[in-house]
């Protein structure tokens, strides 16, 4: 009985300790964010590996999500004789929900895991300690540029995802299923509000970018410096980012669309 209680207590303490380390890490990172002004080149290089290289998967999945939405939406809407509202259905689901959320999930798999593995391996091979020995602050040299890159990439990627998805929906809805092209766009414009829908989607993706960057970098920085530890940290990044994004999305949706 007491043993079980003790294990529970140890587990709880461990969770709180990790939470605390995570927040301290975030504070330290925020303290180093000036790197974008001092050494923008570092950020640009990370933007390439985090943002540009994620572009392909984002564009491909955005197109397919848009196309599938158009198919499914058409099947339901045509029953009510409201096939013209297809543009609205596709655009609202993409801009409000699917764009930010699916982008964040893909981002966690494509870029977040890579960031964790990279930093975890840097730690395992003692490159981070080596930098400290040379009086180079690894937070500033390694962590902060990657944080900026992930934080900046996410809204851009989410916007590309939504835009490409709307195009994919147009391709299927207008090109294959024969919805009128003019009403696809005009119904969309009539019902999608810039401040209510597009802006809230962007705010969501900014929040997801922040969380995804934080989790990926912290898991790497906090990884047990062995090959097994790095592998575990990478898995945790993907799982925790997905859970955090979904939970945050629920809260943000509740706050935004009352």
């Amino acid at each position: 009985m007491l043993g079980t209680l003790q294990r529970l207590g140890r587990w709880g303490l461990g969770v709180f300790e990790r939470l605390g380390r995570g927040h301290l890490f975030l504070l330290q990172t925020i303290g180093c964010l000036g790197v974008i002004v001092m050494r923008p080149r570092l950020v640009i290089r990370e933007l390439h590996s985090v943002g540009v290289l994620s572009l392909l998967i984002i564009v491909v999945s955005g197109t397919f999500v848009g196309m599938v939405l158009a198919y499914q939406g058409y099947i339901t809407l045509v029953r009510f004789g409201a096939a013209e509202a297809l543009g609205t259905a596709v655009a609202l689901s993409l801009v409000r929900e699917l764009g930010p959320v699916v982008t964040a999930l893909l981002f966690a798999g494509r870029a977040g895991s890579a960031l964790t593995a990279e930093i975890g391996l840097m730690k395992a091979t003692e490159q981070l300690s080596g930098m400290e020995m040379m009086a180079v602050n690894p937070m500033q040299r390694v962590i902060a540029p990657r944080f900026w890159a992930a934080f900046l990439s996410m809204p851009l990627l989410a916007a590309i995802f939504s835009a490409v998805g709307v195009m994919g929906g147009y391709f299927v809805g207008v090109g294959l299923l024969g919805v009128d092209g003019g009403s696809y766009w005009s119904q969309m414009q009539a019902s999608v509000d810039f401040h209510e829908d597009v802006m809230n989607g962007i705010i969501k993706s900014v929040a997801f970018g922040f969380v995804a960057a934080w989790i990926a970098l912290f898991e790497g920085y906090d990884a047990v410096p062995t090959s097994e530890g790095v592998s575990r940290a990478t898995t945790r990044t993907v799982v925790h980012t997905a859970l955090a994004v979904l939970a945050l999305d629920f809260i943000l949706t509740g706050l935004m669309f009352q």
């Binding site: 851009l156 766009w185 969309m188």
Partner: peptide
């Protein structure tokens, strides 16, 4: 190119998709 694409997508969302 990436940043330009992202901004173009935002612009499209604002002008073509929504009622801005």
């Amino acid at each position: 190119i990436f940043v330009a694409l992202g901004l173009a997508a935002l612009f499209m969302l604002a002008m073509k998709v929504s009622n801005l």
